[in-house]
Amino acid sequence: MAVSREYFKTFRDLPREDWFIYGHRACQGCGEATAVRIILKALGPNTIVVSPTGCLEIVSSPFPYSSWAVPWIHVAFENAAAVASGIEAGLKVLRRKGLVEDRKVNIVVLAGDGGTVDIGLQSLSGALERGHDFLYVCLDNEAYMNTGIQRSGSTPFMAWTTTSQVGKVRKGNLTWKKNMAAIAAAHGIPYVATATTAYPLDLANKARRGAEVEGPAYLHVLTPCPTGWRLPPELSIEISRLAVQTGFFPLYEIVDGQLRITVEIRKRKPVAEYLKPQGRFRHLTDEDIAKIQEQVDRECAKLGIP
């Protein structure tokens, strides 16, 4: 198995410059803003970004202002991967015809979970299947936060949202989180990985590997949302770390079909440590938490995590 290249061993290896710049309107502690900043540091200025509708688009582009120091396009909600397909195909043919400079440009989708696992899944599947050379990043805050914390297919089991309310007969979201990374991997694409903000170098390296690989790459990034998760903003990074340490969100990469855990957890913490600080899980009983723990154990076992 090929060893993945470490582009960034320390923070000093990341450029000082930013291409997602200050002045955006993200909430305090926004995991998405943190992740995007790191991803663009890893990719550098020779990059074109596509974003579907969502938090990121709203906070970064209030006309006539923009937080994007790289070319950026937003078209609609469900079609970011199709737009990226067109950019990739367009540059390919224009290069072939000598109409644009012959150089590699990173084409990156920075999308939310709604725009990826729900409404954007069809166009994403099409683009992955066709093999376009691009990196698709899902910035997963586990609900439609921009419209006011509505449940998505990526919302965890029993989490409260404004459309999976907690009441006398129902306790939040009824279903388990959709495993989007596995769906992406099922397309047989060369690179799939998961990442989160508490492990920035891991995130930066995966973004860069995804961009460097020839063909489609999919990166699923858990990005805590203090507003929607009912969490103090200063715990944004801490909760991201707990997601990994409890095995709730394992960090791995799948290179040409071979899975490798990139952040090894020797002894998993109980999942309660991840759930308890979050207001969206405050209604859970010990029994509920035990049920979630069982599911986390099952998923970890599938990945070979002790």
Binding site: A89, L91, L99, R130
Partner: peptide, 23 residues
């Protein structure tokens, strides 16, 4: 470049992407 898109929605979306780079 002939893109076999998976829907008409994506057909026009892909055209927008390609048009945005000058194709």
């Amino acid at each position: 470049e002939y893109i076999n898109v998976e829907s008409e929605h994506s057909a026009l979306s892909a055209c927008i992407g390609a048009s945005a780079v000058g194709a």
